[in-house]
C-alpha cells in the first residue's frame, strides 16, 4: 500500500515561521488530488495544530501521512503538557499568553476546531512530558 509521509519541526514561539508547515501540507494534498472539501477541513485543523505548537508547546513535530484511508495528522510536543484536557477542549478556554493574544491568537477555539473538522480526533497529554494529538480525515 502506498503512502506519503512528511515531517515538520515546529519551534516554540517562532511566529515568523508559523504557518509554513501548514502551507506545505496544503500544497502536498493539492498535488495528490485530495478533494476540496477534505482539503478545507485539513487546512483549518493543521493550521490550528501548528499554531498550538508555536504558542503552547516547548517545540515539537507535525507529521503528515496520506494513505488509502485518509489524511493523518499527528502533533507531538516535548512539553509542558495539559493539566486538564476536558477544560482545554472547551470552546473559549485558552491559556495563551499576552504575546500570543496580541498577535490575534488564543481565542480558545483551537482544539474544538480541530475536533470539529477531523473525522477522528484523539488527544493524550501528561503534565511535564508533552501532548500528542492524532487526527484523521477520511478521503471519501
Amino acid at each position: 500500500m502506498s503512502a506519503v509521509y512528511r515531517e515538520y519541526k515546529v519551534e516554540a514561539d517562532d511566529f515568523t515561521r508559523a504557518g509554513e508547515a501548514s502551507a506545505d501540507i496544503k500544497r502536498t494534498l493539492k498535488q495528490l488530488g485530495v478533494s476540496s472539501t477534505v482539503l478545507r477541513r485539513v487546512a483549518v485543523a493543521c493550521y490550528e495544530v501548528e499554531i498550538n505548537l508555536v504558542i503552547h508547546s516547548d517545540g515539537g513535530t507535525l507529521t503528515l501521512k496520506v494513505d488509502d484511508e485518509g489524511v493523518h495528522l499527528k502533533s507531538q510536543d516535548v512539553g509542558p503538557g495539559i493539566a486538564d484536557i476536558d477544560q482545554a477542549m472547551r470552546e473559549g478556554y485558552s491559556t495563551a499568553d499576552e504575546e500570543a493574544r496580541s498577535l490575534g491568537f488564543g481565542a480558545g477555539m483551537g482544539l474544538p476546531n480541530m475536533k470539529r473538522n477531523a473525522d477522528r480526533f484523539a488527544i493524550k497529554s501528561r503534565l511535564g512530558e508533552g501532548t500528542t494529538i492524532d487526527m484523521m480525515f477520511a478521503l471519501a
Partner: peptide, 20 residues
C-alpha cells in the same frame, strides 16, 4: 469548477508514487 493543474496524477496512488 476547480482547475486542478497542480495534481500530479488523476490516480491518487500514481500521484503518491510521483511525489515520492
Amino acid at each position: 469548477r476547480p482547475n486542478p493543474v497542480m495534481k500530479l496524477d488523476e490516480d491518487m496512488h500514481a500521484a503518491m508514487e510521483k511525489m515520492e
